[in-house]
């Protein structure tokens, strides 16, 4: 194959040499006899490429790029929206937390006040009961004391009467009572 090409090239050289002139030594680019052929095939090629590009390739790539732009834009918008929602959710959470905290504080304060009230009431009641009991006891003590004084008076009269009788004096009950009473005062 290689030698074959070599031969054809040599043959072409021979032909060129036979033609003679500048063409053999010169550039194939300036061989005007090939221009018609080159231009024809070039125009065919360009038309084919242009048709392929305008009918298939470029609209397709353009559509893909536009679709991607749209997707990215909408994704960004969605992300922005989600971010906004997240911020809102956080705010709501914080608000709920603060509300709950305030509510708890209120409940604690209420309970404390209620308990305080109950304690106060119980204390007051207990104080009243204690005061009543104390008064009652005082009354009882006073009564007992009065009773005791009376008994002492009676015993003193009886004792004085007995002592006088044993001494041989006869004393009336009236003067004894007066004497005892005045003694007991002193």
């Amino acid at each position: 194959m290689a030698s074959n090409t070599q031969q054809t090239t040599d043959a072409a050289h021979g032909a060129d040499a036979a033609h003679g002139g500048a063409e053999a030594a010169g550039m194939p680019q300036l061989d005007f006899s090939t221009f018609g052929n080159q231009i024809f095939w070039l125009v065919v090629t360009l038309v084919v490429i242009y048709l392929v590009l305008t009918k298939v390739a470029l609209p397709r790539i353009e559509a893909v790029l536009a679709e991607r732009r749209g997707t990215i834009t909408s994704d960004l918008a969605a992300a922005e929206e989600l971010k906004q929602k997240a911020v809102e959710a956080e705010e709501a959470y914080n608000k709920a937390l603060a509300d709950a905290r305030a509510e708890a504080n209120k409940i604690v304060a209420d309970a404390r006040a209620e308990i305080q009230g109950e304690v106060d009431a119980a204390a007051a009641k207990a104080d009243a009961e204690i005061a009543a009991k104390a008064a009652e006891s005082e009354a009882a003590i006073a009564e007992i004391r009065a009773g005791a004084v009376d008994s002492v008076k009676a015993v003193a009269k009886d004792t004085a009467k007995e002592i006088l009788a044993s001494l041989g004096y006869k004393a009336d009950a009236k003067s004894i009572t007066a004497a005892v009473t005045s003694r007991m005062k002193g």
Binding site: G36, Q38, W41, V56, A57
Partner: peptide, 24 residues
């Protein structure tokens, strides 16, 4: 001739093939 396919024609057709492969 004007319409004879040449080695140049072959490589221009290959260019079309390359463009179709890449872009289509």
């Amino acid at each position: 001739g004007t319409f004879t396919p040449t080695n140049q024609t072959l490589w221009m057709v290959l260019a079309i093939v390359g463009i179709v492969l890449l872009l289509v």
